[in-house]
């Protein structure tokens, strides 16, 4: 079955480190996905109104592009894209009236009935590739690295599209274990990073940053892994606004640690795009070669 890859806007701009490391990892695992040639922004958030379908057009158009590409599945890295596309897909599958209205509105597009399946990249790793195959392919196990998962919201909620239990997920813990690192749970793993409120209520957002970072520190973790560029911004980049004692808590996209463990070319990890502390941690643990300091 052909699997299309939907990058999403942020993966092509601010989160190149996410995309490049993920694609390099897939190449190392010998697993093929095909990037969609034509696509639009998914809308980033699923519209929660029942009387307004206009905001469903963007994700449904993306699903139509995947259908046009002959894909049986479309996969995403960004948690927000995943959530939006998966929920729009359910809408198109389950609500006949809305499906008809949307199809009739988009006279310029072929009809869509939810034929394509939306899967998150982590689901590909777990369900299609499998932790065993990843374990067998490790070139550089992350032994001794204490890593905590930060699921955030969009991978888990609502449960209809969650890739794991909304209250007791294990997928990222299993992932971390598969890399040879030490999976470490912490109190704020399924909490919200503050999301888009970084723009509207930045003080409220920073309280979220502080809460997550402090909870992670309390569990004695070396780093967080996550799957959402907005979480990465709020928990990673926004740490500079906190001036927290003890230096920065490194934050990685899960795919970056995967690429390192699989021995993929280090350029694919683009650690230069991470917040402070990420690259330094891996250097210090001897997992990547020390870079020449500017």
């Amino acid at each position: 079955m052909k699997i299309s890859y939907y990058p999403g806007c942020t993966l092509k701009s601010k989160a190149r480190n996410f995309e490049d490391s993920a694609l390099a990892s897939l190449a190392a695992l010998g697993f093929e996905v095909t990037e969609l040639e034509r696509w639009n922004c998914c809308g980033a958030l699923f519209s929660l109104t029942t009387d307004d379908l206009l905001h469903q057009l963007a994700p449904v158009r993306v699903l139509i592009r995947a259908q046009q590409a002959g894909a049986g599945k479309v996969t995403t890295l960004c948690s927000q894209c995943y959530n939006t596309l998966a929920r729009a897909n359910r809408l198109m599958r389950e609500d006949e009236e809305k499906r008809n209205t949307l199809n009739q509105f988009m006279t310029e597009e072929p009809d869509y009935h939810g034929q394509v399946e939306v899967v998150h990249f982590l689901q590909l790793l777990r369900d299609e590739i499998g932790w065993e195959r990843i374990r067998a392919a490790l070139k550089r196990p992350l032994t001794g690295l204490k890593v905590a998962p930060f699921y955030g919201c969009m991978l888990l909620r609502p449960k209809e599209v969650g890739i794991d239990s909304p209250v007791k997920p294990s997928i990222l813990m299993d992932f971390i274990a598969a890399l040879g690192a030490t999976p470490t749970d912490f109190a704020a793993a399924e909490e919200c990073c503050g999301a888009y409120q970084v723009l509207a209520a930045p003080e409220a957002g920073l309280k979220r940053t502080r809460r997550v970072v402090e909870a992670a520190r309390a569990s004695g973790v070396d780093a967080l892994v996550l799957s959402c560029p907005l979480c990465e911004y709020n928990i990673g980049k926004q740490q500079q606004e906190l001036a927290a004692p003890g230096g920065a808590l490194p934050v990685f996209y899960f795919s970056q640690l995967l690429a390192v463990a699989l021995g993929a070319a280090e350029e694919s990890c683009r650690f230069d795009l991470n917040a402070a502390g990420a690259r330094e941690l891996l250097e210090e643990r001897g997992l990547i070669a020390a870079a020449a300091r500017k």
């Binding site: 806007c9 034509r38 639009n40 922004c41 206009l54 963007a58 988009m106 310029e108």
Partner: peptide, 22 residues
Amino acid sequence: CVACNACTKICPMDVQVMDYIG
């Protein structure tokens, strides 16, 4: 942008406006 595509549909030069905004 919500990808409604009204821009592309009105364009007298057949430019895929929604796509360039994307």
